[in-house]
Computed example of a mutant assay.
Amino acid sequence: MALDHTASGVYVIAPTPFHDDGRVDEASTDRMTDFFMEAGATGITVLGVMGEAPKLDQAEALSIATRMIKRASIPIVVGVSAPGFAAMRALARGSMDAGAAGVMIAPPNTLRTDDQIVTYYRQAVEAIGADVPFVLQDYPLLFQVQMTPGVIKRIVTDNPSCVMLKAEDWPGLEKISTLRAWQAEGSLRPISILCGNGGLFIDFEVERGADGAMTGYAFPDMLVEVVGKLQAGQRDSAHDLFDAHLPLIRYEQQFGLGLAVRKYVMKRRGIIASDAQRKPGGMLSAKAVAEVEYLLGRLAQHDPRAKV
């Protein structure tokens, strides 16, 4: 199931389930993997930003990735971003040996110029091997690295193993349109474009040419349904469903709080046993919990999946 430019649908960003004491919860990891497949996900991405990857040691990271790879019958992409190439290579090669479909690489926040960005990805490919399909993660709001469409084009052109862009610039709709226009005219080879940002703009991103989503949300089954409706041309129906979830999606977008919200709702849905984050990490206040419950109650009037 090697990742390639035809990837589409929804690749769910998986959080890492922990017990209340911070140990990795393997039973919840299995249950979550099963849920994502039952929800219709076409793939799963582990050890991403919302997977608390920096809080895991190398052995834990590879163990979690391997466990999900072995359990899933859909492609698994493993986030391998690391401060140095040695650690990146170890996790990338270990994950691919276990059966991963590909890896995802985010830029370090020290990159400032276009040439620095392009050089970094060339060196990353040299480190992990040109035989490893990789996802280029473009998330300037978090990583503070600005990738213009031209830079993305250079990286894709220079590295045949770059098969997907995880697009989560904000605003990023024009960037998607530009890349697809270059592809249509033949100046850019085809790549998959899956979008992040918690699905906040997925309704219009797909209409601009994105192939789907690579993101997390407490209702990934809704994202699967919305993407399917958009790809089938059911525009109004897709927007109606998306709009019903938008208040909760917006609440999840709060920096520093979003993962706590997502894990809380996933616990309420019975997907994971605990909403604990590994330290440093916070829990929702009583007031925040009340607000999330209010949003769930309102959402349940339109989507029975929210009747937790």
Score class of each variant (00 low, 15 high):
residue 2 A to W: 10
residue 2 A to V: 08
residue 5 H to Q: 06
residue 5 H to I: 13
residue 8 S to W: 10
residue 11 Y to Q: 04
residue 15 P to A: 08
residue 16 T to M: 09
residue 17 P to Y: 01
residue 17 P to Q: 03
residue 26 E to P: 08
residue 30 D to F: 15
residue 30 D to M: 07
residue 30 D to I: 04
residue 31 R to C: 09
residue 33 T to Q: 10
residue 37 M to I: 06
residue 41 A to V: 01
residue 41 A to D: 01
residue 41 A to E: 07
residue 43 G to L: 06
residue 43 G to K: 07
residue 47 L to G: 05
residue 51 G to Q: 05
residue 53 A to M: 11
residue 54 P to L: 12
residue 55 K to A: 05
residue 60 E to N: 14
residue 60 E to T: 05
residue 62 L to D: 06
residue 62 L to C: 05
residue 63 S to F: 15
residue 68 M to R: 15
residue 69 I to T: 04
residue 72 A to R: 04
residue 78 V to H: 04
residue 79 G to L: 07
residue 79 G to D: 06
residue 80 V to T: 00
residue 83 P to S: 00
residue 84 G to F: 03
residue 86 A to Q: 07
residue 91 L to P: 02
residue 96 M to Q: 00
residue 97 D to V: 07
residue 104 M to K: 04
residue 111 L to H: 08
residue 113 T to C: 03
residue 114 D to L: 07
residue 116 Q to W: 07
residue 119 T to E: 00
residue 119 T to K: 08
residue 122 R to Q: 15
residue 122 R to E: 11
residue 133 P to M: 09
residue 134 F to L: 12
residue 135 V to S: 08
residue 137 Q to T: 01
residue 138 D to G: 04
residue 142 L to R: 03
residue 150 G to Y: 12
residue 151 V to L: 15
residue 153 K to W: 11
residue 154 R to W: 11
residue 161 S to Y: 14
residue 166 K to P: 03
residue 168 E to C: 02
residue 168 E to Y: 11
residue 168 E to S: 03
residue 169 D to Y: 15
residue 169 D to Q: 15
residue 170 W to V: 07
residue 171 P to Q: 10
residue 177 S to L: 04
residue 179 L to G: 00
residue 181 A to M: 03
residue 183 Q to N: 00
residue 185 E to H: 03
residue 186 G to D: 11
residue 191 I to G: 02
residue 196 G to P: 02
residue 197 N to C: 11
residue 198 G to C: 13
residue 204 F to A: 12
residue 210 A to I: 02
residue 210 A to C: 04
residue 214 M to G: 02
residue 216 G to E: 13
residue 219 F to A: 06
residue 221 D to H: 05
residue 224 V to W: 13
residue 224 V to I: 10
residue 226 V to R: 09
residue 226 V to K: 10
residue 227 V to Q: 11
residue 230 L to D: 10
residue 232 A to H: 10
residue 235 R to V: 14
residue 236 D to W: 11
residue 236 D to C: 15
residue 245 H to F: 14
residue 248 L to R: 05
residue 250 R to Y: 10
residue 254 Q to A: 14
residue 254 Q to L: 14
residue 255 F to I: 06
residue 255 F to D: 09
residue 255 F to Q: 11
residue 257 L to G: 12
residue 266 M to S: 01
residue 267 K to M: 00
residue 268 R to H: 07
residue 269 R to A: 08
residue 270 G to C: 10
residue 271 I to S: 13
residue 272 I to Q: 02
residue 276 A to Q: 03
residue 278 R to E: 05
residue 283 M to Q: 12
residue 285 S to G: 09
residue 289 V to Q: 00
residue 289 V to P: 06
residue 289 V to A: 04
residue 292 V to A: 13
residue 294 Y to C: 11
residue 295 L to N: 01
residue 295 L to S: 00
residue 295 L to W: 06
residue 297 G to K: 10
residue 304 P to G: 12
